[in-house]
Design a binder for these strands. Structure first.
Lengths: 200, 200
DNA sequence: AGATTATGTTAGTGATTACTTACTTACAAG
DNA sequence: CTTGTAAGTAAGTAATCACTAACATAATCT
């Protein structure tokens, strides 16, 4: 006999399966049957917990967004200076991508970009929030005289988020043949040295 | 009566339709029926020109790769100094994304990256070629004393490709509410000024 | 002008999709 | 122990998918 789980546990299980399968099968090709097989229930059981596939995706998006926000908060809480906080924010983001490799693929999925406006807005808001965190810390660094005159905090933040996204894509396309966190942190140090430059 | 076209013209038309629809519908959910309607023929006519959908995608991938290579070559032919060539290479890439907005999505689609191994390798080679162009020009700039000591040409090239990809994602998620080419070139100048910094 | 060929259509195929309906049973509360 | 409910299943649904076979005609060649 199949052991039954609470709706909350099963929902968490389904969302985890979607994240896992999005990486292996692709977010846009993922079917409810694939999900059911991965979880170990019948396909109809999926719809007991999520009325439509779109709402399942929204729940997945929420889960990702929540996870990211928690990671950022922890990164900022555990560090004192603006610069170490900035480093921790980048490290946290890289770590999240390493733990959820489907993230870049979901970011480019049709589900997010075409079908599900709510999901897209949620992701855009979350990414803008991250950018705002970066800008705030870069601003603090500038006020402490740790930044050169060659770059505005806002532009620096864009360069840093691009750095993370670019590395994530390279990592993904290259079959994850390198360790994303240390490689990302190495390039971050390169960029931070450039930011500190005071030459006109 | 429907006017018939040569197989070559029709193939070009079909490939153009795939590129257009990949942006609106998404590469992984695009159906042969969608393509046929866009072109203005019946669905069966698609299979007169391409035996399978996979081979259609191979043709689309070839067309994209050719287009990119031509754009890069033109960018490098029409400019004298390493720095203006570098600028032209970045501008060309941004221009290609602006003209074919589905490019990032196709580049990360399951169709090209999972189903079609040969094509995936071709794309990876093409992107590595781009990176090699960037490294070569940055190397030339370094030898001309135009680069600071704080960054290696290889790392600088990664930062620049990340810049392009990061802007592309921001442009895509933000519903293309800004002009990608000038915004990208503006940030490129910021990064180039940082590269030139000679302070340790 | 007549024959050939290549580009097209009509009308299907079985497989798969998201989702539904009607029924069943594990489990916790009283 | 009984019972109501929530978590499950079996067996469908219509729609859509890539693809095919048989037939039609526009374009081209001789």
């Amino acid at each position: 006999m199949l052991r039954r789980k609470s709706a909350e546990d099963r929902k968490t299980e389904i969302i985890a399966a979607v994240l896992d399968l999005s990486d292996r099968i692709g977010p846009d090709r993922l079917t409810t049957n694939d999900i059911a097989q991965e979880v170990g229930v019948t396909q109809a059981a999926i719809f007991r917990h999520f009325p439509t596939k779109a709402e399942l995706w929204t729940a997945v998006g929420d889960a990702i967004a929540d996870r990211l926000e928690v990671a950022w908060q922890q990164a900022m809480d555990g560090n004192a200076s603006p610069m170490t906080r900035l480093r921790a924010l980048i490290a946290a983001q890289l770590q999240q991508i390493a733990e959820t490799p489907a993230l870049p693929a979901i970011l480019h999925s049709r589900e997010l970009n075409v079908d599900n406006a709510a999901l897209r807005d949620r992701f855009r808001g979350v990414l803008m929030q991250y950018q705002a965190h970066l800008v705030a810390h870069l601003q603090a660094m500038a006020e402490a005289g740790m930044m050169g005159a060659g770059v505005q905090p806002k532009d620096a933040a864009v360069l840093l988020t691009s750095l993370v996204q670019g590395i994530a894509i390279r990592w993904s396309l290259g079959s994850r043949s390198f360790d994303i966190v240390p490689e990302g942190m190495r390039l971050l140090e390169v960029q931070l040295v450039l930011f500190a430059c005071k030459e006109g």
